[in-house]
Amino acid sequence: MKNVPLDSVDHVDRAVLPIGTDYPPGHLLDWHEHRRAQFLYGATGVMVVDTDEGTWTVPPERAVLIPAATRHRVRMLGVSTRSLYIEPDAVPWWPATCTVVDVPPLLRELLSAAVGFEAHYSLSGWEGHIAALLLHEIAARTPLPFHVAIPATAELAALCREYLAAPDVGVTNATWAARTAMSERSFTRRFRSEIGDSPAVWRARARLLAAVPLLRTASVSEVAGHLGYASPAAFTAAFTRAFGMPPSRFAARSAGGGPGPGHRL
């Protein structure tokens, strides 16, 4: 099925409903939730998924597993999706929180085939076998660490979401403490109690997550400078430590390449 609203087929008696959807650049799917669990794969572009508990950045050709009845929103950056909407009782192993995963070639091909199914696809033919194999392949996926937690307290959550939208290397613990009318020590202790990391560690990881969508249109050198790193090498080392792969895997151009006409970060 292509570009079909889930609500129009959610009642269909199939454990797996595959739907492919094309989104305009920068499209925001505002806060919503699904009765079914969702396997959300971006065949192109980058997705940023928010829940009340955290933010997950989904690089190109990766996917995010979204638990059933999870309130979330998704920012689509040049994305064409291949989604599977899955009855919760068909996936008792589904993670309790959103999880970014790898998508190997076999799974990509299965997803591409599945979005061509009709809603009432045959369960006994090859379509039914593909649906079953899709669940087997998803269960074997490897989690990837492309996320940061969001504090439960509204004022701390607002600071974090604001920073994710526009990371600023000049922001310090003292800056955030002043915004919340707390001493720096008290603020840091409170933040750590909710997240498990210090505010400085959280901001460093948030800047690295922000690099993923920037790398769609900029070189490693440009993104490193924009995010306040002393050199592309320092940025590459930090990114690789955090995510297990270098930023060059996602870069539009090699480091050192100049910006193209009209380029903006």
Rank of each mutant, 00 (worst) to 15 (best):
M1V: 11
N3S: 14
V4N: 04
L6N: 03
D7S: 13
V9R: 13
D10Y: 04
A15Q: 13
V16E: 01
I19S: 08
G20I: 01
D22V: 06
H27I: 00
L28S: 06
E33R: 08
E33G: 01
G42A: 15
G42M: 03
G42Q: 08
T44N: 06
D50F: 15
T51G: 06
E53N: 03
R62T: 15
R62G: 00
V64D: 03
V64K: 09
P67A: 08
A68C: 03
A68Q: 09
L77F: 11
L77M: 14
L77A: 06
V79R: 07
S80T: 15
S80Q: 13
S80N: 11
S80K: 12
R82K: 12
S83W: 00
Y85S: 08
E87H: 11
E87A: 15
D89H: 12
D89P: 01
V91K: 07
P92R: 07
A96D: 14
V100A: 11
R108H: 05
E109D: 14
L110F: 00
A114Q: 04
V115I: 14
F117N: 05
A119R: 14
Y121R: 06
Y121K: 06
S122W: 04
S122G: 14
S124R: 12
W126D: 06
G128Q: 11
A131Y: 06
L134D: 06
H136N: 02
E137I: 00
I138L: 10
T142H: 12
P143H: 10
F146M: 10
H147Q: 14
H147K: 04
V148E: 06
A149Q: 07
A149V: 11
T153K: 02
A158H: 10
L159D: 09
R161H: 14
R161M: 09
L164E: 10
A165C: 05
V169I: 12
A181H: 12
M182Q: 15
S186N: 15
T188Q: 12
R192F: 01
S193F: 01
S193T: 05
E194T: 03
I195K: 02
D197Q: 14
P199F: 02
A200K: 14
V201I: 08
R203I: 07
A206L: 02
R207A: 13
A210S: 15
A210F: 11
A211R: 09
A218Y: 02
S221N: 03
E222V: 07
V223K: 12
V223Y: 07
A224K: 13
H226T: 09
Y229T: 02
A230I: 04
A230L: 12
A230D: 12
S231F: 04
P232A: 09
F239P: 14
T240Q: 13
A242N: 05
A242G: 07
G244E: 04
M245T: 13
A251I: 10
A252T: 07
S254K: 09
A255G: 15
G256E: 05
R264M: 08
